[in-house]
Design a protein around this nucleic acid. Sequence first.
DNA 1: CGCCGAGTTGAACTGAATCAAGAAACGTGG
DNA 2: CCACGTTTCTTGATTCAGTTCAACTCGGCG
Lengths: 187, 187
Amino acid sequence: MDFVSYLKTILEVSASLEADLNHVLRTENLPKKYRLHNEGKICRRVYFIEKGLARSFYYDKDGRDITGWFAAENSFTTAVDSFFQQQPSKLFLELLEDSIVHSLTFDEVENLYAKFPEMERFGRLMLLEVFTKTVNRVNAMQFQTAQERYRSFAENYPDILQRASLGHIASFLGITQETLSRIRAKG
Amino acid sequence: MDFVSYLKTILEVSASLEADLNHVLRTENLPKKYRLHNEGKICRRVYFIEKGLARSFYYDKDGRDITGWFAAENSFTTAVDSFFQQQPSKLFLELLEDSIVHSLTFDEVENLYAKFPEMERFGRLMLLEVFTKTVNRVNAMQFQTAQERYRSFAENYPDILQRASLGHIASFLGITQETLSRIRAKG
DNA sequence: CGCCGAGTTGAACTGAATCAAGAAACGTGG
DNA sequence: CCACGTTTCTTGATTCAGTTCAACTCGGCG
């Protein structure tokens, strides 16, 4: 599903908003391992994944690769530490599969917000969704064991479990690859 | 600062929005330990703290009291697992100090969103702020030690450090009270 | 084939939890 | 304003989940 179709599943889209969107949206077909964004830069775009899988990650103080977020079909991704404030990022954004992505620049999004109240509403709703997910994740991190976190991840994101590598999932859950391997070995 | 004054620091407030807000806003002066919201109920209101301190918490599966969030002056609080979806909550909201709070119901907020695009914008910006903080918290939880988390908490929220109890802060950071006490003992 | 990344398995180690006991601070009523 | 009970904080000893380091297996691909 492309971005405009997705938007229509959430709210009414006026003809003029649709026209403006089609005018500015950039659609790309990109290969696995492609980097949508690199550390140190200001992230200019927000991406909607029509097909494929992406992850954001960063290198922690010991140089370990830590997955921050996965984004699959019909979801958005961007360097959250950079895009909204338009400041330099610590994150990378990479594709884990060949993907079709649609994107808008920060300025384009801001202009759409200013021009179309429905777009502002959409922005609020998307933020609400991702905020809710992030809160759930904090709760999981706060006082669940590694095993509990893995199980609820497996329940909520069965597709990503299949498609992403063990190492990427482990760091996303805040555990090492070895621990995740052992958890999985049991059941 | 009351809610309308705060709103004006973020964006332009039209006279008619101000009038509507003054019409629906409820202001209360409430004592320490007062419960703004209880588990099991649907949380109807979002609260702006003019003065005082609140925390949200829940009881985990072992019956331990876990602090989810603190809210002090010029910030908002509500049962995040309930208010936005208007579904039953696992959270409590309690005051840790005598407080002055302003509040709006869910319906009032929705009506304001529908009537005033600037209010929708404000909602988006507030959500963005709290989302950003929550993402930072996930990062901290993911691969920082207890000590590192305590230090950055102490840096970012020195006032809450003074005003909230050790046990509340410990569970917020995802550690036990004993561990926090030992961390603090060192420096 | 043989290499290489991804996953598994084992053994030793460690940060933080748990359990338990005191010490301080706090507030409420006499 | 003090005495007493309650809550909050500290400190110690023990335990355990998860990390670390290291070796090994497996499946794909040049």
